[in-house]
Design a protein around this nucleic acid. Sequence first.
DNA 1: TTATATTGGTTCGATATCGAACTAGATGAA
DNA 2: TTCATCTAGTTCGATATCGAACCAATATAA
Lengths: 148, 148
Amino acid sequence: MSDENVPAFFTVFNEIGIIAQLARSAFEAQLPDGMILPHFSVLNHLIRVKDGQTPRVLASTFQVPKTSLTHTLSVLEERRLIEMRPNPEDARSKCVWITQAGRQFRDEAIATIVAEFAPVEAALSPDRIERMLPDLIALRKILDAARD
Amino acid sequence: MSDENVPAFFTVFNEIGIIAQLARSAFEAQLPDGMILPHFSVLNHLIRVKDGQTPRVLASTFQVPKTSLTHTLSVLEERRLIEMRPNPEDARSKCVWITQAGRQFRDEAIATIVAEFAPVEAALSPDRIERMLPDLIALRKILDAARD
DNA sequence: TTATATTGGTTCGATATCGAACTAGATGAA
DNA sequence: TTCATCTAGTTCGATATCGAACCAATATAA
């Protein structure tokens, strides 16, 4: 099969995959030892959206299997960055609450990473960012809708 | 810290991360059991660029630690999709060659995945793809240049 | 009501990732 | 030369991912 038969949008996904990997590496290099992007992402989500959500809801939000999330949450709980409390509405379930230490961790991580990414920010024209964002959001929604 | 202090381009990286994850899941769902994206990526690279390269070069191309690549290559070799031969120019080193079965595997994977992604392709206007690609490439180059 | 099916979460096992330490071969300086 | 240093690749150990099987609780149907 020659490459002409490969649709052009595969190149887009390829570039996106490379960017995601590079950005993730740079991001994680600034996190303390043993902390990785999913740990940060959960804390960030609990603050930006809301805490008190169940692991089930979080797993579906992040598009990961619930077993993966169990593990991520156990690390965060171990480090006292979240608390797991019983769900008053369903005895099978739990609710995930961020702690004060968790908020502080997330804020400090952002401050560190914003500083680390300053050269990247400087190299990026605001035009480009504004131009890309709507297309990226549209693409994400299309992919999300295509999931079975 | 309030969200206004988070630079706008973080949103771009966030969207890119989500898209990469969704695309990867959809992609891997079409691969045979036990095969994942890195396996395909190596085969694809060996065909699209060239084979006979050393693991060292491949690791640096894919931006992964050499230990990760050792593992990926061992799976591909186990499945007879690549062959590792001594490097005639350096007795420490090896060269990675794709087999006929490897070529066939890659071609079939692409055919399957192109079919699977047809709905996504249909939902994406060619305009959008063309508009995004140059910006994505520019962003990737900026990130790549920012690596230590 | 009671039996069955479904759901939220964990445990387990298999594979992936990746840093540290190691081995063998290459390179370079004395 | 020869000895120290560097480099390519593997091994090892620790953690991450994720599907299958499991348990407990809820929802549904008879």
